[in-house]
């Protein structure tokens, strides 16, 4: 089911940075390059390189910067597990907003299982029937405390930047577990990379 892909670490002074080919992202770009205007939701932070990259496509880019708000998520749910309007508050786009592409990057690794269910329910309401959703799962035992920053270098090539902020246990989600939690979605393609990342491209059911 998975295809192994190459990965290359940068030189020693750049520890914490990784450049690799991303076959999952390549699928996304094929969709963006189709010519039709696409509505993209990027859950990552605003990055000059990514904005510049997308500017050469006919698209609308919505930057949600959700990863920045993640520390709040667990705090909120720890204090009030029944508090459901969390994602509508963090992602306050119009009720009618529908996306063709969703770039979720590392997000599911940093959400509790309950949070993933809520996230999936919320985001599915804003996902077009033929939309593609990109997530990167971590398969190593440990992961950095903070999510990585992903810069798009070119089509299908990513620069992953990880700050030295300590490590914690990784949830090590399998594809089947992820799909159990995100039951509104189904697997479209998945790729296991040599760097320990498992890229998931999902579609709505």
């Amino acid at each position: 089911m998975f295809k192994a892909q190459g990965a290359a670490r940068l030189s020693a002074p750049d520890i914490g940075q990784l450049v690799y080919r991303s076959p999952g992202l390549q699928l996304i770009f094929e969709r963006i390059s189709s010519g039709d205007k696409v509505n993209i939701l990027d859950l990552g932070p605003p990055l000059s390189s990514n904005v510049e990259f997308f500017s050469s496509y006919h698209c609308r880019l919505y930057i949600a910067d959700l990863l920045q708000s993640l520390p709040l998520v667990d705090t909120y749910w720890a204090e009030s597990p029944a508090f459901s309007p969390m994602f509508p508050e963090l992602l306050d786009f119009d009720e009618s907003e529908q996306f063709d592409i969703i770039l979720g990057w590392d997000i599911v690794n940093y959400l509790s299982e309950d949070s993933i269910r809520r996230f999936s329910r919320f985001i599915a309401r804003h996902t077009k029937a033929d939309a593609l959703c990109f997530f990167s799962l971590l398969t190593h035992k440990e992961m950095a405390v903070q999510p990585a920053i992903h810069r798009i270098l070119e089509e299908g090539s990513l620069h992953c930047e990880q700050h030295d902020c300590g490590s914690c246990a990784s949830p090590r989600f399998t594809q089947s577990r992820l799909l159990e939690l995100m039951k509104e979605f189904q697997a479209h393609r998945s790729f296991l990379l040599q760097n320990g990342r498992q890229e998931q491209v999902l579609r709505i059911r």
């Binding site: 904005v51 997308f54 500017s55 496509y57």
Partner: peptide, 19 residues
């Protein structure tokens, strides 16, 4: 957008536009 800025919202990208 300079790295480090805070931005939440959408950017309309025209075919001819360039950052």
């Amino acid at each position: 957008l300079e790295d480090g800025c805070k931005f939440k919202g959408s950017i309309e990208m025209g075919v001819a536009s360039k950052s």
